[in-house]
């Protein structure tokens, strides 16, 4: 599936939730079940420091696509990371660099990606795109 197909799929899934708490229960589950980042990568080099929560991000290129793994100390942040990874990981570098992440807005989580929230997520998305740009120019 391409990036936008996955975004639309997530939007459809979230349409089923009746209220905020259900939505967050799902995000928390995603966070708890996110495959862990390799512990050796949870270091200063991979750290994106937010004021509220912190994020670790690692990127690997594999057959002209990029694989992301990530972690956070806050489980809701981690759940949103799981969604971002589902959308972007395994995609082509060029697609990642050029994509517009509209699903966050559509499922009502924009506040978590507001620059003033300072939970590391905005910088994480920027970082994912930077990796994509870098890999693109490498290949």
């Amino acid at each position: 599936m391409d990036i936008n197909q996955i975004q639309d799929e997530i939007i459809d899934e979230f349409a089923f939730f009746e209220d905020w708490m259900e939505k967050y229960e799902y995000i928390i589950d995603l966070g708890k079940n996110l495959p862990l980042i390799d512990p050796s990568k949870k270091d200063e080099d991979h750290l994106i420091k937010g004021c509220q929560s912190q994020v670790w991000l690692e990127a690997k290129d594999q057959d002209s696509t990029i694989q992301f793994t990530a972690d956070s100390d806050a489980v809701i942040t981690k759940g949103i990371i799981a969604l971002l990874i589902r959308v972007l990981s395994g995609q082509k570098a060029q697609d990642i660099a050029e994509t517009e992440l509209y699903f966050i807005d559509k499922i009502g989580l924009r506040e978590h990606l507001s620059p003033t929230r300072s939970n590391g997520l905005v910088s994480m998305v920027k970082q994912m795109k930077m990796y994509a740009l870098a890999f693109q120019h490498k290949s």
Binding site: C51, Q52, A74, V75, I76
Partner: peptide, 22 residues
């Protein structure tokens, strides 16, 4: 076992304004 950010986010959705962080 819970990060303050998580607790604050859920309280917000329940209509409760608290502050989280340092």
């Amino acid at each position: 076992g819970a990060h303050p950010y998580d607790v604050g986010t859920l309280l917000d959705k329940l209509g409760i304004a608290v502050r989280t962080g340092h």
